[in-house]
Design a protein around this nucleic acid. Structure first.
Lengths: 193, 193, 193, 193
DNA sequence: GATGAATGAGGCTTCATTCAT
DNA sequence: AATGAATGAAGCCTCATTCAT
């Protein structure tokens, strides 16, 4: 049974998460003070320390949450469609991520290259959907003589490249806008796999 | 003629650069205060403000310097050798960068995602050698029907991928050590170009 | 009859005493927070305030307890032996205190300047054994023309001197170790009485 | 040459000492915040940290200063008089200390049993007058077969006893007022030496 | 009686920046 | 040009105490 107190606690924690996320993305991490977060969340300063060790504790947790969420959504959406070939499926998956990040530049700026292997690995155990990214890849290489280790490295490079390109093109339009980069990115990814 | 005073000024500026670089790489950027920098540089606090606007001013300049230096060294070394095919030349160039960063993890950590197109572009005008990276690529694509714009994007992706893989594998050994990642990275790059 | 509830209460109070004592002696008084005490005692924060007003309330009670205990043990042990002359008896009594404090430096540090007349007086009514210290002295001066007031002052000085010497020599080895100070301390006390 | 800046610095440091001393003696150490000290001293908060590490740094320095000052004054005054016998000289010396502490109960409370061997030793090298306390004692024992070590322990006990009695009787009137304790204290000291 | 989440005042300390010398 | 003492805003974090459950 979830008591009133427990519900209340969860609410406080969530309001801290939301407030911190908003401030981190709009003002920046260095420019956000804990006093800003608690003011926005509508709780007392001490309350922050009941739930988080310090600013970087809540930041890490937010990044893990958000990053996993993106990937998790992407694979869920992908699995709901049906594709004839692996290449199409992967393209759809990557495209979903790109569009997600395109629509939320602040999120992209925050999680930046944290959409990386580290997060990926850490999220693996907690998010069933993340495991399905592996499964998707495995199925794609079924029948070939590519080892699992090799496959994992390819997946790693695909995600790293995607992250890098997104960051540079979405945030800075460098070397071009993401829409202009997309075709060549997909082309490249298909060459890689 | 360079007067004694001018030499003195340059010396002070350089000692500030050196001190800041050492502290940024060993203690971290956030953890380095201007008072730390001036103490290490052996100059007065006020002197710092004669040369730099604030901590991020000196940081930006350091990153630009160091990043350009890496690329500049890499292309210089590459041009001193002679290669039969473009693929070998590019591999040598990338390998030089990797080895450089491998031998200086602190530098890698600092310039990290800054070894990017932004820096690359900014450094273009000031460093003759950087322009030669373009030249190398142009020669590589001579005769093909690849446009300059397309070529530039490929170069961009090659460098982004290299940077990402270096960071993850050198700093965190994720997904594997850089030496184990190298073969597949080269293989991938050759697929891309 | 002692009900289960009453036993439970006493247990809680005792665990608070024990926890507080451990923390005061190991971490220091200023460095010990009430939250530390309750955590160690395994009770809730609010519970502390059911038994004690604040940190200094429990501290005072601990000091009174522990100090009285030392004196009480000392006189009990002394009375169990038989001595021909008062001087031997007093020496044994003082020596017992010294050895006790020697074996528990943390206790000494805590009660230090509190092993004083104030505590002594306050403990008088509650501890039958403390009254026996007086009795011992009274018997020692039986037959002489020393007034009770005078005798009390001498006892006071003997205990103050003992406390001071113990603190300085046991904690800091100043001016010498307690074992090297003992002969001269006894010699001095015998001169005083 | 003492520049204006140096004079200014010394003034600031002194005003911090004075303010801290006043607050420590009137409000108590635990109840005095650094913000109180700087407010009273009329300097900025940061200035405090230019001169002292923290509250306990300035406290230690104050205690050493004040304690040494008491002893130093006492021996100076004593040496200005002429006494026929050592006993009279020592009595005068101790009496001076007592009267000093009697007239400044707040100081006594602060330096408390810090008027002890530790401080005494530390002050030895810096205060010429402190060395003269030794000299006074040495002259007193001239001709006897008491070793220097033995003599030092006696001096130690005399000072410890004096300090303890002063504290208890001046601050708490326990077991009697200092004026009523004085005769028996002197009597006791003369027995000890 | 017991709990422990929540509070928010208040302490400590750092540090970018200024400015008289 | 160079200095470094002084500033005080601003951040971090602790902790005694309360009170609804």
């Amino acid at each position: 049974m979830v008591t009133k107190i427990e519900r209340n606690k969860k609410e406080k924690e969530n309001s801290l998460y939301t407030a911190a996320y908003d401030l981190f993305t709009t003002k920046g991490i260095n420019e956000t003070a804990i006093s800003d977060i608690v003011k926005k969340a509508g709780v007392a300063k001490g309350t922050f320390y009941l739930y988080f060790k310090d600013k970087y504790d809540i930041l890490d947790k937010i990044i893990l949450n958000k990053s996993s969420h993106v990937l998790s959504e992407a694979i869920k959406e992908t699995n709901e469609k049906s594709f004839e070939v692996f290449e199409d499926k992967l393209t759809y998956f990557i495209d979903y991520i790109i569009e997600y990040l395109k629509s939320d530049r602040l999120l992209l700026k925050l999680i930046y290259k944290n959409l990386s292997w580290g997060v990926f690995r850490r999220a693996y155990k907690d998010y069933k959907e993340i495991q399905e990214i592996y499964t998707m890849f495995e199925k794609g290489y079924e029948g070939s003589d590519v080892t699992r280790e090799h496959m994992e490295k390819i997946l790693f490079m695909v995600l790293e490249l995607t992250g890098s390109v997104c960051y540079s093109s979405i945030i800075y339009n460098e070397p071009e806008s993401i829409d202009e980069m997309k075709p060549i990115l997909f082309e490249t990814i298909l060459k890689i796999i």
